[in-house]
Computed example of a mutant assay.
Amino acid sequence: MVDSVTAQERAGERSGPRRKEEIFAASLELLAGQGYDAFTVEGVAQRSGVNKTTIYRWWPSKSELLRDALLQSGTLAFDLPDTGSLTGDLTELAGRVEGLLAEPETRAVVEAALVGAVRHPAMRELVTQFLEDRLGRHQPLFTRAVERGELPADLDPALLVDAVAGALWIRLLVRRRPLSDDFTGQLVALLADGISAARERAGRRRG
């Protein structure tokens, strides 16, 4: 039996990236379907077909497994826009977030993560890490905007990310209403007005 398990583990290591993506997919499916309370490594092993000893060797706890599933899975990823303007980038960013949340599977993952974050400190920490990771990935968008003079260098980009994501989550997840071009346009225009005011204040401080 020991030799059999060892062979399975070695096979898992040789196909690590593919197996890990399968584990991540199974983890997010279980989180969406059962929530954080009922989520177990054993359940992930059964769903993914990967031996649980292999999973435990890669991730000693379910929190560490969920962290990597949220951060590394392609399920919640999208390419960063580069339209040549901040308003264009924010409009594209809103559209891509909407695209993710329009998928029932992805929407269920996000909802389960947010509900878990309210109830469990461990899940809240995972969601915080996910948001910080996404903010870091979005940083080039804001760096380009600063270089173009569209954004004050001292403006915290997290304000814009939270404003866009928060508005979309409330609209799509709470109110259950679709996004229209008018909604997205008004949201970005409102943010652009605020950015313009912040840029003017920064100019007066420098003057």
Rank of each mutant, 00 (worst) to 15 (best):
Y56S: 02
A145I: 04
L191G: 01
E29M: 12
L159C: 11
L65K: 11
R67S: 09
A32R: 03
E200Q: 13
R171P: 08
L30F: 01
L179S: 09
T6I: 13
L155N: 00
G49R: 08
A167I: 02
P140E: 10
F183V: 02
L65Q: 09
V41D: 04
A11F: 07
L141P: 07
P157G: 04
Q72T: 03
A117N: 05
A165M: 14
L114N: 11
R67V: 01
A77F: 12
D156E: 14
R205Q: 09
R119G: 02
S4L: 12
F130E: 09
R205V: 11
A153G: 12
R199M: 03
I23N: 07
A11N: 10
Q34P: 01
L80H: 01
Q186E: 15
P104G: 07
V97H: 03
G88F: 12
D193S: 13
S4A: 13
A117L: 08
S48K: 02
P152Q: 08
H120S: 15
L151W: 00
D82P: 04
E150A: 14
Q46E: 13
V109H: 06
T91D: 15
G35N: 00
R67H: 09
L101F: 05
A167V: 06
L100N: 03
L168G: 01
L114D: 12
S27D: 03
A7L: 15
A145L: 02
V110C: 09
L71S: 09
G88C: 12
T91C: 10
L160N: 00
Q34H: 13
D82Y: 01
M123Q: 11
R14I: 12
T106D: 08
A112F: 06
R124A: 15
V174W: 07
G203Q: 11
G33D: 12
S61Q: 07
R96H: 08
G203S: 10
A94V: 04
R10Q: 15
R177D: 13
L126N: 08
A192T: 12
R199S: 14
L114R: 15
P121I: 04
A202L: 00
A77E: 15
P17N: 10
E22W: 00
A94H: 03
V110F: 10
L179Y: 01
G84Q: 07
V5C: 03
I23W: 03
V5M: 11
V110Y: 08
G49V: 06
G35Q: 03
T6D: 11
P121R: 14
R67W: 02
R176D: 09
G84V: 10
L30T: 00
V188P: 01
Q186M: 13
T106H: 15
T40V: 06
W59H: 11
T83C: 05
R47P: 04
Q129T: 08
R175V: 02
L93F: 12
S85D: 08
A198T: 07
R206K: 10
A158V: 05
R18H: 11
L28C: 08
G43P: 03
D156W: 04
S73H: 11
